[in-house]
Amino acid sequence: MSVTKDDVRRIADLARLNLDPGTTDRLAEELNGILAHVKTLGEVELPTESRDAVGEPVPGEGSVFRDPDLHPDGLESGAPARGAPEWREGFFLVPGLPALTGEEGRVSSDDGEASR
């Protein structure tokens, strides 16, 4: 199979990317080149017990979980305000959600740090 421009547009939509037509054309062509190389994986004879053959990334270590009481540094103190485009009283500001406001919300810019 080959990847069409429509495929690239659909994938870009899933990935929340706007692509201009020139980029869409170029990516379709590049993706086909890369996938032609990837096709060689089809030659590989997979073991019959292949259900257990998915991923063995950590040599000698089982899955472990972080202590749930161990919080990342600095996230309670308002420190994200330094990096967030808009931040007020401990919250990230987002544009209004249509499901809640009944209309397309707009980015608030009357308060908080200006967009950078």
């Binding site: 929340r16 692509l19 990096g83 990230f92 959600l97 249509p98 397309e104 950078r116």
Partner: peptide, 24 residues
Amino acid sequence: DGIRYGVRALGSGSTREVYEASRS
């Protein structure tokens, strides 16, 4: 996504448009 850190694209409308414009 332009919400929690990094650069937020200016002049965007809905949340989804902010994501798309900022990422692009």
